[in-house]
């Protein structure tokens, strides 16, 4: 059994940081809603509030780690240009996807989302964490503030979720194209 450096970094980026962030999002949304909106927030203890602050900080680290490893470790391998005359595009996923009209959308739409829109996730969650750490339970007294925070939290989840889906599909599609599989059975 062996694993290449590329495969390992792709796993760390996607399944390590990315998937863990997406899993954490559901808990974050429930806890934020509970703290900021429901009447039961008055029963929450300082210990629970501290736990949510640490939870949000961990999510900030995961989100930035996911986009930074994606942009500076995995993406250079994805966009690498093959030398002239290269016929085996297995090590050049971008060119492999662009070589067929049935897969080019995964590059033009899917990868564009991962390159740009996915960055909304760490930017948004950093703001959410800052505001919650600053305000804590007092957030329920600021209606507009908590509405904006929850909206950004949902936007972060959606941006990361679509990026994760596109990443998985790009990996799957480029692998299947390389193996000559043209459609799902």
């Amino acid at each position: 059994m062996e694993i290449t450096a590329r495969a390992l970094w792709t796993l760390i980026h996607g399944l390590g940081f990315g998937a863990l962030y997406l899993l954490a999002c559901s808990g974050m949304l429930v806890e934020l809603y509970r703290f900021a909106i429901t009447s039961s927030s008055s029963e929450s203890t300082p210990g629970q509030e501290r736990f949510l602050k640490i939870y949000l900080l961990t999510m900030v680290v995961l989100a930035w780690a996911a986009v930074l490893t994606g942009a500076y470790v995995v993406y250079p391998w994805y966009r690498a240009a093959p030398p002239p005359g290269t016929t085996d595009l297995s090590m050049f996923p971008q060119r492999l996807l662009m070589s067929s009209p049935t897969t080019i959308a995964w590059h033009s739409l899917g990868m564009e989302w991962k390159e740009h829109v996915a960055w909304l996730a760490p930017i948004s969650i950093t703001m959410v964490a800052f505001v919650f750490i600053k305000y804590g339970r007092d957030l329920k007294n600021h209606r507009q503030l908590r509405a904006a925070v929850l909206s950004f939290a949902v936007a972060s989840f959606v941006a990361a979720g679509i990026a994760g889906f596109c990443g998985a599909m790009i990996k799957l599609t480029s692998t299947r194209r390389f193996r000559g599989v043209t459609r799902f059975n």
């Binding site: 703001m127 800052f130 505001v131 600053k134 305000y135 007092d138 007294n141 600021h142 507009q144 503030l145 904006a148 925070v149 950004f152």
Partner: peptide, 12 residues
Amino acid sequence: PALTNGSGAAAI
């Protein structure tokens, strides 16, 4: 509210 919404609004 115990805090003003200024710093939160600035972060948003």
